[in-house]
Design a protein around this nucleic acid. Structure first.
Length: 314
DNA sequence: AATGATGGCAACCGCAGGCAT
DNA sequence: AATGCCTGCGGTTGCCATCAT
């Protein structure tokens, strides 16, 4: 494997970007595209290394980037996907259009991680840290933990179900938009007519970010016992039959499936009515939740996952 | 008001994988 | 097959603003 050149070239600037540099970079990319990042700085008249330019563009200057407070939907998507995927920020970012992996990573490290830890939930495993600790904790905390756990399991089960359903049908979920981590573009699935006429490949690759599902698929009995269940009515909510005009006829792309998962999450969150006028999380913006708001927040989780613990059907 | 502690976030570092030669 | 380049990713650092004392 090749060696990565360091950004320590003679006369190369580092550190915070100035407005002038931003303007140069933006203007150049808008005019010519980024092309090779290595050669871009020279062409654009910047005393930066290509890597620095790329980072600045992707995380800050790229059009359509959403900044500021995370919405409840976004936060829940992050938490649930992190429970499934771990620190795979790039994959998680695919589910949060217009957010960068760097921003999500920062938000996790500075807000969510701390909050979960405060509640006695291990941010790494998404499980209770120590049962004995909770024997003396108050009922509200216990309730929150239980809610969190049920929601985590719910998310896992939904992903597995969705995957299995699509594998069984050998079709992807249509209507979902394909969102590249760093470049938004729509790439809907081909219509069923094309699929049925074998105009598209039957290949359904497991999304790279969802490799975990492979192991879950062959889960141990113990793991299976953790899986919550879902009635057939929920499957009906998965809109697998809607069609859109195709732009791709080759094969199902893994990230499309990823996005399907996001929609799945959001289908539950739509029931919530906990957002402020801007659709943002309650709170004062410094990451701390008032106790009452926190209760509502987590109660929303349990509401969303209520009634899904029936029989296990895959 | 001064100073240290803490939090938030942009940016950097180094590794890994894909691809071309 | 080996090598090198380019890009993407995740972890970490360091700066700056805010808060606490």
């Amino acid at each position: 494997m090749g060696r990565t050149p360091r950004c320590d070239g003679e006369g190369l600037k580092r550190g915070p970007w100035t407005p002038e540099e931003d303007e140069k970079l933006s203007a150049y990319i808008k005019e010519y595209g980024h092309g090779s990042w290595r050669t871009l700085p020279q062409k654009a008249g910047l005393q930066r290394c290509g890597k620095s330019c790329r980072l600045r563009w992707i995380n800050y200057l790229r059009p359509g980037i959403k900044r500021g407070k995370f919405t409840l939907h976004e936060e829940q998507t992050i938490i649930q996907l992190h429970a499934l995927l771990g620190n795979r920020w790039a994959v998680i970012a695919m589910h949060l259009p217009r957010r960068t992996d760097n921003e999500i990573k920062n938000y996790w490290n500075t807000h969510i991680k701390k909050r979960l830890a405060k509640m006695g939930i291990d941010p790494v495993t998404h499980r209770r840290k120590d049962v004995s600790n909770f024997s003396s904790s108050n009922a509200a905390t216990l309730s929150h933990i239980a809610q969190w756990e049920s929601t985590r399991l719910e998310a896992e089960a939904r992903l597995v179900r969705e995957l299995k359903l699509r594998q069984r049908l050998l079709i992807p979920s249509p209507g979902f938009q394909c969102k590249d981590t760093h470049q938004e573009h729509d790439q809907p699935f081909p219509p069923l007519s094309m699929i049925h006429s074998n105009q598209v490949s039957n290949t359904l690759a497991l999304p790279p970010g969802l490799d975990v599902l492979k192991s879950m698929d062959a889960s141990t009995p113990g793991d299976a016992m953790r899986m919550p269940t879902v009635g057939s009515s929920e499957l009906a909510n998965v809109d697998i039959w809607s069609t859109k005009e195709p732009t791709s006829t080759d094969q199902v792309r893994s990230r499309d499936l990823n996005d399907g998962c996001t929609n799945l999450f959001h289908s539950n969150f739509d029931e919530w009515n906990l957002l402020d006028s801007e659709g943002c999380l309650s709170g004062d913006g410094d990451g701390s939740f008032a106790q009452e708001e926190d209760k509502m927040y987590w109660n929303g989780i349990v509401d969303a996952s209520a009634g899904t613990w029936d029989s296990l059907v895959f």
